[in-house]
């Protein structure tokens, strides 16, 4: 798939192709998407939680079903869904970090090439990088500089690689306004803002084409979160692609070019952020419900509380 047929095609903002509509900054260099996930399903083989303890049989518990999403060069795509709805599993599937009891089907295309399971694993840190949620993702007993540098292998080649990456880490620390002494600090000595930048540097160290950012700004209010995502914007503007996973529709509309509305394990609508200007431009009833549930549109909801979480309650008219 991945659109060789529309190689040099130019799309209007709201024009639809491949299940989605475009934003102004979405590009197809080389005639394909940077990352495409098609018909992804993830299920877990587990003991039937509904049955009694001794009678429980193995059942397949589907978590993500038939999910498709694309990331273009130069854009931030936000996957917006309620907390605990399985968004992180999407990140895991893209990175090939699946639990042993997970069954994953579907196809992943990276830069026009279809990847099998091993191919996906090879892309980890070599094309696709993860920016995780919190400082927990840093080893508490390793200086952060060494963590940004990462594993380098052994022997002569390893030492050369290490020297190269150390130099690059130094540049990154300088570029992100952290003093060089910080490289010797341990994670517990960092502030939240510093930890976020260190996590981003861990990703940038590997020169990725696509960054998967999984709730990278927990606990920050809209203004600070948007500010914290400036660095991802810079990365996208330089031709990278960002898949931003968040529960915060307002933040998503603030920073993302396109929005993928995630509900009950699948993307119900993938559309330009601009289309959220009016509910008439949105196709899926759930997206429209989400629009109505936003504070500035009067919380006209579904379920009772505000935001994406509330709209999970059901389709509102």
């Amino acid at each position: 798939m991945a659109g060789e047929d529309h190689a040099a095609a130019r799309h209007l903002d709201a024009e639809r192709h491949h299940h989605h509509t475009h934003a102004g900054s979405s590009q197809h260099p080389g005639g394909h998407h940077l990352l495409t996930v098609e018909h992804l399903s993830v299920s877990f083989r587990m003991y039937d939680p509904a049955a009694s303890f001794f009678a429980a049989r193995h059942v397949e518990q589907p978590v993500i079903r038939d999910l498709s999403i694309s990331v273009h060069a130069g854009e931030i795509v936000a996957v917006v869904g309620a907390s605990g709805s399985g968004k992180t599993l999407l990140a895991d599937a893209i990175l090939g970090l699946n639990e042993p009891n997970a069954r994953v089907t579907g196809s992943i295309w990276f830069d026009g090439v279809r990847c099998d399971a091993r191919g996906v694993e090879r892309l980890r840190g070599h094309g696709i990088s993860l920016v995780p949620q919190s400082v927990d993702h840093l080893d508490p007993l390793m200086p952060v500089g060494e963590q940004v540098v990462g594993a380098c292998g052994h022997g002569h080649a390893g030492r050369e690689e290490r020297a190269r990456r150390r130099e690059r880490a130094r540049q990154l620390f300088a570029a992100y306004g952290l003093p060089e002494e910080t490289m010797r600090s341990y994670p517990h000595e960092l502030s939240g803002g510093m930890a976020r930048r260190v996590l981003l540097m861990c990703a940038l160290m590997d020169d990725p084409r696509v960054i998967v950012a999984d709730e990278p700004t927990p606990g920050l209010d809209l203004e600070l979160a948007a500010h914290a995502l400036d660095d991802l914007r810079t990365f996208a503007n330089a031709g990278g692609g960002v898949l931003l996973i968040t529960h915060d529709i307002e933040l998503a509309l603030h920073v993302a070019d396109r929005i993928a509305v995630f509900r009950e394990g699948t993307v119900v609508e993938e559309t330009a952020a601009a289309n959220f200007a009016s509910p008439d431009l949105l196709e899926h009833p759930f997206s429209r419900a989400l629009w109505h549930a936003m504070p500035e549109h009067g919380f006209a909801a579904v379920g009772g509380s505000a935001g994406a979480c509330a709209a999970q309650g059901g389709d509102a008219r």
Binding site: E181, S185, L190, L220, L224, H227
Partner: peptide, 26 residues
């Protein structure tokens, strides 16, 4: 680390808070 995150909210630019915290262990 929770206080680190909260620290950030109060200061518009995370840097100032970060440096203060990084200095304290010494």
């Amino acid at each position: 680390m929770a206080d680190g995150w909260i620290e950030d909210r109060g200061v518009a630019n995370g840097e100032a808070a970060g440096d203060a915290i990084a200095g304290s262990p010494h």
